[in-house]
Design a binder for these strands. Structure first.
Lengths: 231, 231
DNA sequence: AACCGTATTATGGCGTACCAGATACTGTAG
DNA sequence: CTACAGTATCTGGTACGCCATAATACGGTT
């Protein structure tokens, strides 16, 4: 059975993650889930101590997050967690609308049962998570819904862009999904996307996707302005 | 005249660029204009010598370029200049289409004479550069045309995304604009965008912008497949 | 001459120590 | 109570060293 087995099948899944990749994930996660708050200073040497790695690694991580837009660098003062202003958030939602609409249209034009099935699986996942009040799972399933939308039509680059932008508004997302009625309206809107895809209606899918992020954006705006006025 | 002059007016334009920002620009430019070719290895210690900076800086630069997609990192082998495959290029053009179409629509909906004037200025710049056969200027003016499109409606985030993606296909751009007839058709298509904006035709502007990048994409595809088959 | 194991080299990954310059803080003298 | 000087803090940047791994060269064995 010399060449019978493809290498890939037996290839041991090697971690191979470098220390800085681990550190990168840690810090990014710490930012998106609020351990570091917007405006917090990220002192290099403190991070070294907290992460248990050297300044070399920390600096590379900070640079990386900077180019992701999660960290801002004040000249001669150093890195802080990026502040999200409301205008920027709206722009990000707008871009997501354009790209997710595009992906939805492409899915509709292909309209394979496979795509529909995958989307519906994520959708029921979302509904169940809402029922169980598991907001982390809601976010994860929502992400996977959109990931399916993009990757099923091989739009990995666009998915990368959306992902990149999404981390910047992650805490907004976690606030919007907790909003009253979002547990019903959100899935309903996404269901419209799937319906349009099922019947091969490109324009409908596009519009439905746009509507969904527009609704999310509106909620986010309300939440954000309420929060800033309260402070 | 103590406080008569606003600080901003006399404030000396300080470079304030850190060494690594300078190095970043240098290396990025070296990649986009072909000094480093796709697939070339970027040996850290060599770059130190060529740039005259320390390894720390070089590494931070490489990380940054990696997250921009200009550099790829092979495990246990190190960074190389990212290869651009044709599918990825098409995806990038597609995204640009979606976003530039969006911006064009927004411009049309606002439709201020100011916007039209600024766009037309870039457009004549492009025509003149084509006439003078100055391809570098063509690229610069094209960039400024689209920059206007985005920044006039305050879509800085989207412009950032487009810019980020554009550097990855920069050498494709410089090939497409040199194509026969592109000197006439390109500006003609862009002129249609401006026309639609002038008459406040959102859909028309969207469509015209999409058409323009679709044309560029088609040329790029032809050029790229011709090049790969020749090798 | 073909083959196989080993030494060397090249290179990235990571850590430490150090210095210069900007900024924020603080305590003291007037 | 204010102004100023001194100090602590922190980033930006440099230099150097160590280790792990991959590739290559080399040298001996069959």
């Amino acid at each position: 059975m010399s060449g019978a087995l493809k290498d890939a099948t037996i290839r041991v899944e090697r971690p191979a993650k470098t220390l800085r990749e681990l550190a990168l994930d840690k810090v990014r996660e710490a930012i998106v889930n609020g351990y570091f708050r917007p405006g917090d200073r990220l002192v290099e040497r403190d991070l070294c101590a907290q992460l248990g790695v050297s300044r070399t690694v920390v600096r590379e991580v900070l640079r990386h997050l900077e180019s992701e837009g999660l960290v801002a660098n004040l000249p001669n003062k150093g890195p802080i967690v990026a502040q999200l202003d409301i205008d920027e958030a709206k722009q990000i939602y707008e871009i997501r609308g354009a790209l997710e609409g595009m992906a939805a249209r492409l899915c509709a034009e292909r309209s394979s049962p496979e795509i529909v099935a995958a989307l519906e699986e994520s959708l029921t996942g979302i509904r169940n998570s809402y029922r169980d009040n598991d907001m982390t799972a809601v976010l994860a399933n929502t992400t996977s819904f959109y990931q399916t939308l993009f990757t099923m039509v091989d739009r990995h680059v666009a998915w990368g862009v959306v992902n990149l932008l999404t981390v910047r508004i992650n805490h907004l997302r976690s606030m919007t999904i907790k909003t009253e009625r979002r547990g019903i309206e959100g899935p309903a809107q996404m269901s419209k996307i799937v319906d349009a895809i099922r019947r091969g209606d490109g324009d409908g899918a596009y519009q439905a996707a746009m509507d969904h992020v527009a609704a999310a954006c509106a909620i986010a705006e309300a939440v954000l302005s309420a929060k800033t006025s309260a402070e």
